[in-house]
Each structure stands twice: as structure tokens, then as C-alpha cells.
């Protein structure tokens, strides 16, 4: 049996709700009193927040504050960490993603992720982008082809690589690699994209390109980005969440956070007094 991506109704429980535009106003991601432990260590100490669709939300905070851990809850990437345990509820599109019968693979198609260091597979550029479609068992060559091209176009990589799609993804420059990884994520048509410090390993020009891209992607996707760079957060995000020692200190419109923070700790951090 083959899944055609044009017909999202056939897909699992998680997807059904995004088609319904009336849900647009309801939160895309909603967490309730989330606590995370690694063995004995309490990494997240009860965080509740909700993220609206088609927005860019930035997570900021000093190293070890739990912002990456929190981000990785949304596509259940922490499941592989030894000693990980979770308390609380996370809803995506209104569905609790940590419920027993939730299909993790299905969830991750819906919630894509871009990592800190560009991590293309040691495969050709084409195969990198086609990977997600192939693992779903899609065999329609035309569909795969179209999707690879449109994804590469979306990230602005098409013109640069259209003549050497067979070249290894590792042969690209760092910035190109990261855009390839974003294209790879877009190809499976998620509705949420998680980005874990996607530009921290890149030069300023590549960073600017990616930021530009994030701005465009907002039209179609909900983006959550972890960043160390406060200028970046203020440039690209609509909302900003400040984390400190496993707690959410402040979460508000980016404008407010950077111009008029409510909490002293937030102010200290963004003015560079610690962190």
C-alpha cells in the first residue's frame, strides 16, 4: 500500500487536525507542567507554554538551562537518552504525543528537526532530500523528483546544486549542508520545524541566508528555534522564551522580552550580565 502525500486524511491521527483551519487559533504546541529527569537529575522543572501556529518562537538561555532538552520533547528525540523520564502532557495539534499508542515515526514526519551541526547523510544530494520519502515507502519516482526539486528551491539551494544532484551531500560547504538538511526536513512536509541552534556552526553569511529562510518558512510552518545568539532571537522570532536552570522564566512577544522584560533574570541575561 502506498501513501500519497496529497491526501493527508489517510495519514495517522496527528495529521488529521491540521487540515482543519478552524484550529488555527488553537495552540500548535501546548505543554502542561512538564518535568524531565535524566536518572536523578531534574532537567526540566515544570514548564507550561503554548505555541501558536505559523509563528517563530525562540528559546534562549545559558548553556544547560534545559532549552534543548525541552525542544527535543516535541518530536520525542529524548526517548533514546538513557534514564530519561517525563511527567506532564505535551499536545501537538491537540493530541497528547506521549500517549501510549502514539506512533513516534508518524509524529516525526509531522514535526521535523534541524540540528546544531549540519549532518547530511553520506549520500548524494538527491538521496539526502529523498530519504524521508523513501523510508515512508513512497516509490512514485515523479513525486519524489518533484518534491526534491521543490524542497531544494524552497531553501534556495536549487540553483547552486541542480547540476550535481549526484554529488555527495558532504561535498557542500557548511552553510549549504545546513540548507540541505532543512530541505531534507521540508521534503516530508511537516507542519512544525524544530531547530536546535541551526547556525551556531556557520559563518555570518550562511547564517544570514538561513535566517532569511526561516522568515520565509514562517508562512507555511510553525518554527521553534533554540539559539545562543540573542541578536538572532530578536531578529527572527515572534515570541521568545527565556529558560534558566530548567525553568521557564519568561515567555512573551519578542519585542516585549527585549525591550521591556518583566523579570530581573531575563533582563540580566539579555543585557549580557551573565550567561
Amino acid at each position: 500500500m502506498e501513501i500519497t502525500m496529497e491526501n493527508p486524511k489517510k495519514k495517522g491521527v496527528v495529521l488529521d487536525s491540521i487540515v482543519d483551519t478552524s484550529l488555527k487559533k488553537t495552540p500548535k504546541i501546548e505543554t502542561k507542567n512538564i518535568k524531565v529527569w535524566y536518572e536523578e537529575f531534574n532537567a526540566i522543572k515544570g514548564i507550561s507554554m503554548s505555541i501558536k501556529p505559523n509563528t517563530v518562537t525562540a528559546f534562549i538561555g545559558p548553556s544547560g538551562c534545559g532549552k534543548s532538552t525541552f525542544l527535543r520533547l516535541f518530536n520525542r528525540m529524548n526517548d533514546y537518552v538513557d534514564g530519561f523520564s517525563l511527567e506532564g502532557k505535551i499536545k501537538i495539534n491537540g493530541q497528547n504525543i506521549y500517549k501510549k499508542n502514539v506512533n513516534v515515526e508518524e509524529l516525526r514526519k509531522e514535526v521535523g528537526m534541524v540540528f546544531q551541526k549540519p549532518n547530511p547523510f553520506p549520500k548524494s544530494i538527491f538521496d539526502n532530500v529523498a530519504y524521508g520519502l523513501k523510508i515512508q515507502g513512497i516509490k512514485d519516482k515523479q513525486l519524489i523528483n518533484d518534491r526534491v526539486i521543490s524542497s531544494l528551491k524552497q531553501v534556495g539551494l536549487w540553483e547552486e546544486v541542480k547540476d550535481d544532484l549526484k554529488k555527495s551531500g558532504l561535498a557542500l560547504s557548511g552553510g549549504q549542508q545546513q540548507r540541505l538538511c532543512i530541505a531534507r526536513t521540508l521534503a516530508v512536509e511537516p507542519s512544525i520545524i524544530l531547530m536546535d541552534e541551526p547556525t551556531s556552526a556557520l559563518d555570518p553569511i550562511s547564517t544570514a541566508k538561513i535566517e532569511e529562510l526561516i522568515f520565509q518558512l514562517k508562512q507555511k510552518y510553525t518554527i521553534v528555534i533554540v539559539t545562543h545568539n540573542m541578536q538572532q532571537a530578536s531578529r527572527i522570532s515572534d515570541y521568545t522564551a527565556f529558560f534558566y536552570l530548567g525553568e521557564l522564566i519568561e515567555f512573551n512577544k519578542t519585542k516585549n522580552i527585549f525591550t521591556n522584560p518583566e523579570k530581573k533574570q531575563t533582563e540580566n541575561y539579555i543585557t549580557g550580565r551573565f550567561g
Binding site: 500500500m1 502506498e2 501513501i3 495517522g12 506512533n103 515515526e105 523510508i135 515512508q136 515507502g137
Partner: peptide, 9 residues
Amino acid sequence: MNNIQKNRW
């Protein structure tokens, strides 16, 4: 059984 379930299996 859809593809994803098949893969899980």
C-alpha cells in the same frame, strides 16, 4: 496495515 505500521513491525 499502512507503511509506517509495517516498518514498525
